[in-house]
Each structure stands twice: as C-alpha cells, then as structure tokens.
Amino acid sequence: MKCLKNMRGSGRMVLTALGCAALVVLSANAKVDNDPYLRPEMVPAPADNAPNEARVELGKALFFDPRLSGSKWISCATCHNPALGWSDGLPKGIGEGMKELGRATPTILNTAYNKLQMWDGRFRSLEEQALGPIQANVEMHKDMKALIAELKKISGYSEMFEKAYPGEGVSEKTLAKAIASFERTVVSTESAFDRWRMGDDHAVADEVKRGFSLFEGKANCSRCHQGFNFVDDGFHNIGLKGNTDQGRFAKVPVKVLKGAFKTPTLRDIELTAPYMHNGAYKTLEEVVDHYSRGGDMKEGLDPNIEALNLSKQEKSDLVAFMKSLTGKPMDITVPHLPN
C-alpha cells in the first residue's frame, strides 16, 4: 500500500520491486520515520483529486503542451523546465511576447507540500494556481473558454480526460486538477544529506556536517528554513538591496509584510540559480554573503535576520551543506502530445 502511494521520482505511480524493498527496510526504522528532515512518503492531495496514473499522465501532457498558450509556443515547462531544476535559469521569468515578468520563476519541486502558492502566497492550492498563468496576459495569454473548446477538438485529449475524470468532461476544473496531479509527482529525490540522515555516516563530507550545524545553530537559517523542505510556509523581508516589490503586503497589509516573500525550498537549490524573488544573486556564495552581513536594506527587515559575521570557512561549509541537498536526477520522459 505504502509503495503505491509513494510518488518519489519522476511521476511513475508504481515503484520497482527494488524501491519497495528499500522502503520496507526504511519503515522498519522508527528513528528515520520520524525524522522531520526526511520527506514524508505521502504527498498531500485534496480528497476530490486523489492522483492516479491517468490523471498524472494527462496533467503531464498539459504541462508540456504549448497549445495551452495564446502564442502556442509557451508551455508551463517553458518556464518550469525539468532540465533547469523545474525553473528557467533566469533572474526573472520571460513570458508572452518575450516580455520580462516582475518576479523570478520558482521551482515546482515539492510545491505539493506548500500551504500557500506563489512568492506572495496568493493561491491556496495547486488546482487554484494552475489556471492563473494560462490566462495571465504576461505569461501564457490564453482565453480559457477558447482553450477548453480547442482541447475538446483534440480527440486524444478527450479520451485522456475521460479516462482521468470519468463523466466530468473537459473543463477548466478537470484541466486544473490534472495539472495539479502531475505537479504532485514532482517531489525531491534522495540526496546525500538524506543518506546521512538515514545513518550512512560517509554519505557526506565533514564540511557538510559542519555546515548543517551552522544552519541550525549560529547562522539561524532554520528560524525560517525548516524541516525536510526547508520552508516555514511563512513570509519574510530579508533585506534585498533596492527591492521595491511590496510582496505579501499587497495581500495582507500588516507592517512586517512590506517586502516580505515566501520562504523558498532549499531542495535541489544548486540547480535553480539565480536566487531570490528578483534573481538578485547568481551563486550560493553570494546568498551566504548576504545573510552574513545581515542583509542590505534595514528598513522593514525581518527581525530573525541579524548580521552573522561568518568566517570564510563557515561560509563555504554552509554552501557545501546546501549542495548536499541535490537529489538523484529524476528520469523524466517528455510526453508525446495527443492529436
């Protein structure tokens, strides 16, 4: 049962026999089961949209299909590219008409575990989120009614929708549910850090172990980056130089939220440069320097942030720790789009 529910890896619903065996061994170890730094096997999903193979397959096709955009050349995967850590490698996203968006494209890795979606948390669920970019003029710029009519004409899609959501039809709702189901399979894979947590003392170098102690201790990172996904589902202004984006404040007008953004995951962080909501930093070294000096803009700075004055060694230990969070590559296959 547990093995069937597990969706570690690339969206395959059924794990190999080997994977199952490994999991059984894992579950026998109570210490590992309760470790908040290891990803829970169960990926949360709403009661009316429990993932199954047909739903994930449909969602994957839609995710990679540029026909979902007005120009017919932008898909979700254009910006959330699996070859670039499910992001785009750009300081800020580029959408319809090659225009730059206001913010950086976040990875969709582990978004299934988020309590709120987007840098400012404006969407509650992946289902709610999925319809946003399709219709946004700056992103995919597609009229929803027209899109649904077009999808209905593609017989391959009609069949896939019927298989995934019998009797529910091709609609805005089933489109969103399918995309969300696919996203729930994009979860972090086992990293060197995880192997160390599970008891393999040789899985990581000493600098990683020192970096992790700093992360939880002197460097205060875990005041905000907590648990296996290194998030607190919270919003903070970390004092980025020259930032004029109000962030969460536009949604919730409480003083502390001026310039505050959602704490992002640090899983696979090595793969998703540049960093921050505005792409301010090119490397993890630059990020650590930022925290070491306690940020740049002091106005509205989150009180959890204070100057750390880290040594050169401490900085490189922290970076080594973050690099140990890179999971095994996912073997994602590109879908054949239906006609």
Binding site: K115, G121, D233, G234, F235, V252, V256, L257, D302
Partner: peptide, 13 residues
C-alpha cells in the same frame, strides 16, 4: 462585543 480573527502575519497557518 464580537468575534476577532487572530492570525500571525509571518505564519499564515
């Protein structure tokens, strides 16, 4: 008299 909804701005949960 009334109902006050109390939240944390930093942690909306």
């Amino acid at each position: 008299v009334g109902l006050a909804e109390i939240e944390c701005a930093i942690h909306p949960e």
